[in-house]
Simulated assay, not measured.
Amino acid sequence: MKIPAPESFEGQILALLPSLRRYSRSLTRSDADGEDLLQDCVEKILTRRGQWRGLNLRGWVLTIMTNLYRNGRRDKARDGLVELDAAENMADPELAADPLERARLNDALNSLSEEHRAVLMLVVIEGYSYSEVSTALDIPIGTVMSRLSRARRRVAEHLKADNIITLRRPK
Rank of each mutant, 00 (worst) to 15 (best):
residue 47 T to Q: 14
residue 48 R to V: 01
residue 49 R to V: 04
residue 51 Q to M: 03
residue 52 W to L: 03
residue 54 G to N: 12
residue 55 L to E: 02
residue 55 L to G: 05
residue 56 N to K: 14
residue 56 N to A: 14
residue 56 N to V: 01
residue 57 L to C: 03
residue 58 R to H: 10
residue 58 R to M: 09
residue 58 R to Q: 11
residue 59 G to Y: 02
residue 60 W to C: 01
residue 61 V to C: 10
residue 62 L to K: 02
residue 64 I to N: 06
residue 65 M to I: 11
residue 66 T to E: 08
residue 66 T to N: 13
residue 69 Y to R: 00
residue 72 G to E: 05
residue 72 G to D: 07
residue 73 R to I: 12
residue 74 R to H: 11
residue 77 A to Q: 12
residue 77 A to G: 12
residue 79 D to Q: 11
residue 80 G to H: 02
residue 81 L to S: 10
residue 82 V to G: 08
residue 83 E to R: 06
residue 83 E to Q: 01
residue 84 L to K: 14
residue 86 A to G: 03
residue 87 A to E: 08
residue 87 A to H: 04
residue 89 N to T: 15
residue 89 N to C: 09
residue 89 N to I: 01
residue 90 M to A: 05
residue 91 A to E: 14
residue 92 D to P: 00
residue 92 D to R: 05
residue 92 D to V: 15
residue 93 P to Q: 07
residue 94 E to W: 06
residue 95 L to D: 14
residue 95 L to C: 05
residue 95 L to M: 06
residue 95 L to I: 12
residue 95 L to W: 08
residue 96 A to L: 11
residue 96 A to H: 05
residue 98 D to C: 15
residue 98 D to T: 06
residue 99 P to G: 04
residue 99 P to R: 05
residue 100 L to H: 03
residue 102 R to K: 12
residue 103 A to K: 01
residue 104 R to I: 08
residue 107 D to C: 01
residue 107 D to R: 11
residue 107 D to Q: 10
residue 109 L to G: 06
residue 110 N to W: 08
residue 110 N to E: 05
residue 112 L to T: 11
residue 116 H to L: 10
residue 116 H to C: 04
residue 117 R to D: 06
residue 117 R to K: 12
residue 117 R to W: 01
residue 117 R to P: 00
residue 118 A to W: 10
residue 119 V to T: 09
residue 121 M to R: 07
residue 122 L to M: 15
residue 124 V to G: 00
residue 124 V to I: 09
residue 125 I to T: 09
residue 127 G to T: 07
residue 127 G to M: 01
residue 131 S to H: 11
residue 131 S to C: 12
residue 131 S to V: 13
residue 133 V to Y: 06
residue 136 A to G: 00
residue 138 D to K: 15
residue 139 I to D: 02
residue 140 P to N: 14
residue 140 P to H: 11
residue 140 P to A: 13
residue 143 T to V: 12
residue 143 T to G: 03
